[in-house]
Design a protein around this nucleic acid. Structure first.
Lengths: 108, 108
DNA sequence: AGAATAGTTAAGTTACTGCTTGACTATTAC
DNA sequence: GTAATAGTCAAGCAGTAACTTAACTATTCT
């Protein structure tokens, strides 16, 4: 709709998050990096399907992967989640937004 | 996947947010309540299509609507955004989560 | 070398999304 | 009362999403 620089990213991120399987993967990855096969194991699904989900998560910059030898290791990448959070936070009430800015000041 | 009480809601919310048109509607609604026709006006789209989007947003508890006479007024409902924010915040780093709790204490 | 492991790629299937059109209902305006 | 307004409902359609299977490529193990 608005192919603004950011808009497309937000699209990808929310679309990636809209799937329960992918959210389960992120949850798993929040406990540390794992290989694609390890990711696939608890989900009753083909490896091929999992690979496709991983690609979606990568394009949304929610995970980053690196292949060493024959195993591809996936780890969480905060960029995507941050984009989502920024969008949501921009739609808070003015009072909540003031609190957000306070947190920003306290943080660094 | 996990039809946990919350899981289904999260699904609906992120799916609703994954569409640029619906996000534009939310943006419009964040400036105050409007009728369905008013919502439809800036988007180059049939009224019927807009109604369908409104239904998606309602099911995600992102908007609440009420019909008076022949006009249905839509207003933002924070429940859905809060659900999304809760999910995202649960996946922050421990350090960030500490800051979140601090904000919670300061808030009320 | 041969067999098992880990992943990739392409193609096909089924189901769901985002729209449109068209017919219809309820209000409000003239 | 008639006409315009505001919305609703039901099909239908093109495009996309989430899989599957099957054939293939690279590693690693024995």
């Amino acid at each position: 709709m608005h192919p603004q620089p950011e808009e497309n990213d937000v699209d990808r991120v929310f679309h990636a998050l809209a799937d329960a399987t992918r959210r389960a993967m992120l949850e798993r990855l929040s406990q540390g990096p794992v290989s694609v096969s390890q990711l696939a194991e608890p989900l009753g699904m083909t490896l091929a399907a999992v690979v496709q989900h991983v690609q979606v998560l990568e394009q949304a910059r929610l995970v980053h992967t690196e292949k060493v030898g024959r195993v591809r290791t996936c780890r969480l990448e905060p960029a995507g989640l941050d984009a989502a959070r920024r969008w949501l936070d921009a739609r808070r009430t003015p009072w909540e937004q003031a609190l957000d800015r306070l947190a920003q000041v306290v943080k660094p």
